[in-house]
Design a protein around this nucleic acid. Structure first.
Lengths: 339, 339
DNA sequence: TATTAGCACCTGTTAATTCTAAGTGCTAAT
DNA sequence: ATTAGCACTTAGAATTAACAGGTGCTAATA
């Protein structure tokens, strides 16, 4: 590809991203100071190379997946975010001492707001976390909150109401035992340990041991079941993308976004700063582009991804992620220094 | 309306709910043992009364909003849920000592799953809650969890990482002061009280008082901002409803479901057991039906609503709500006895 | 008097047809 | 290497025709 061809491809991609209509040769005459015939010739070459496609024999051209790929790897110019975008990013920089998980969620919301695409965060499955501590906090003589914390900074609370035959003091005592015995245990093993190590002890000490056991079991239950640590923000953003006219298709996509197992497919083992998977390149859905970056924050490692149409405003998305990356790095350092 | 006309209306409504196609006179001949002409005559009457409509001069009939209304008020027969539905309801009855808010959310998920419509719960705005207690739970020497509990059983936790110049012990001490001074204060007033009552005290006792103040401020912040206590489950269920072919329209509806202020409009001051607002009768969206019931659970009062197409399977929905209502009542009693 | 058969009439839907706009590839001339 | 010119292609819009499914009304019927 010579320089003009590259410039042509760049123009086609950017123009198509804006207009969402196939680009004909005439549209590019002015920009390139030559006749439409010349453009047509060059386009024919680009098509032979696989970078652009026709919908039908006499339609304008649209970028192929390879074309988008070449664009993002070689042609795309970084964009500067405008003022209103920076304003939306503001709260991130001003809010201090947010916990990792809250910070990530805030990120997602801002990303989704700025880009108008769906944003996703993937942390370790909570079952891979290790129990740091469990606290029982009495609210009154019948109600309590169980607070479970893991090493990766996940904290969950769950409320319980005791039936009248259970003594709050017992529950607190048991929680001390659980702490002593189970701290450091991977969450995935907790259920077993509760059953085989803790239950026998409780049953010796407490009369209504089934109920007390139930509380501890339930306190962990959320961790085991819904593996959490996945957040998806802006699920319905794709409804605004005009290329999705078919309600069936979009419905399928949204279902996928609601299915944790599907979303997990976004995760991929590569450590590049920002990676872009276009169409068939990504394992999630061949009709979308997934842009990913990984973060490490307060000991928790994970991935942030943006899901949008293949005709994504790549340079905008990359610009946003670059800023967030820098911010996450700084925040990560801060936390690092302190640990 | 004589008996036959009522039976006719009932048939038209139920048939339309199933088939989603305008109902012609021929379809009803068998059921009514008479000719299509007779049916046509009767239909003309029903149309004059405003219970059914035509799309165009020679189409079959569809129920009008008034028709649906007459149906649910006078004609609808209660349905028994089938086995698979009861199976889905099962977890509700077996799970014990769930906190109110968790229980409600569980309800919503089950409702949405069984009915395939969107379900919503509306509790009191969290700013209307009153502070019950705030706990500071240290995780290590730099990290802590702040746990805020309100009288209506809302519990939220938020993690913080302390910068190295703040002493954990100080924070815990301050939390005791906050508890002493602010327990019983409506959440909506907390911000002010923090500023004017607590801040002066902290500033006298702690050197880095701004940061410590920040922690308490942030701990409450979520309560103030997003007024929470609204849950919407199955936002995209409407995508499966065939009458919503227009992507624009459905997109608008989903946006509404994501907008808390809009969702609040569902709330209405009426204390009937189950109330049904069809089309223009509801303040949320004139293209849907809202079925509501109110609950009182562990001192928290609120509303559960189901949002679906006007062509909703009313008897199924009502059957589900009836069961839930009974369950909620029992559970409410339990809690009541204990307080 | 309530029901029905028959008929003229209406409209959405579908398929077939035509027309146009936008674009292409190729050839020959520049 | 570029371009003008031309034949050719296709999607999409507009038009038409045929048809299916329905209606209301009238007159005959039980």
């Amino acid at each position: 590809m010579d320089e003009r061809q590259e410039k042509l491809l760049k123009e086609i991609v950017e123009c198509y991203i804006k207009e969402i209509k196939p680009i004909g040769s005439k549209h590019l005459c002015d920009k390139f100071q030559c006749s439409s015939a010349t453009i047509r010739n060059e386009m024919a070459t680009l098509e032979r190379l696989g970078y652009i496609e026709k919908n039908h024999i006499s339609s304008g051209r649209i970028p192929s997946e390879a074309g988008y790929k070449y664009y993002v790897e070689n042609l795309m110019e970084p964009e500067k975010l405008d003022k209103s975008d920076m304003l939306k990013l503001e709260p991130l920089f001003t809010t201090r001492n947010l916990a990792a998980s809250d910070a990530i969620e805030k990120c997602l919301e801002i990303i989704s707001d700025i880009t108008n695409y769906t944003s996703v965060s993937l942390g370790k499955k909570s079952s891979e976390n290790v129990l740091r501590q469990i606290n029982i906090i009495p609210l009154d003589d019948r109600r309590l909150v169980a607070l479970v914390c893991t090493d990766k900074g996940i904290v969950k609370n769950k409320q319980f109401t005791l039936s009248s035959d259970i003594n709050m003091i017992e529950v607190v005592k048991i929680s001390e035992i659980v702490n002593k015995m189970l701290v450091g245990t991977p969450i995935s093993l907790i259920a077993d340990r509760l059953e085989y190590d803790i239950k026998p002890i409780i049953s010796r000490q407490v009369e209504q041991y089934e109920a007390v056991y139930g509380i501890f079991y339930d306190a962990f239950h959320d961790f085991l079941n819904n593996s959490e640590n996945i957040h998806v923000v802006g699920k319905s953003k794709m409804l605004n993308q005009p290329e999705y006219h078919d309600i069936e298709e979009i419905s399928k996509l949204i279902s996928k976004l609601e299915d944790e197992e599907q979303v997990r497919k976004i995760e991929k083992k590569d450590n590049r700063d920002i990676s872009i998977y276009i169409g068939k390149d990504n394992d999630f859905d061949e009709n979308v582009t997934v842009v990913k970056t990984s973060y490490s924050l307060g000991g928790e490692e994970g991935t942030i991804a943006i899901i949008g149409p293949k005709r994504m405003e790549y340079n905008r998305v990359v610009a946003v992620l670059n800023i967030l990356n820098k911010w996450l790095e700084e925040k990560g350092d801060e936390n690092g220094r302190r640990d």
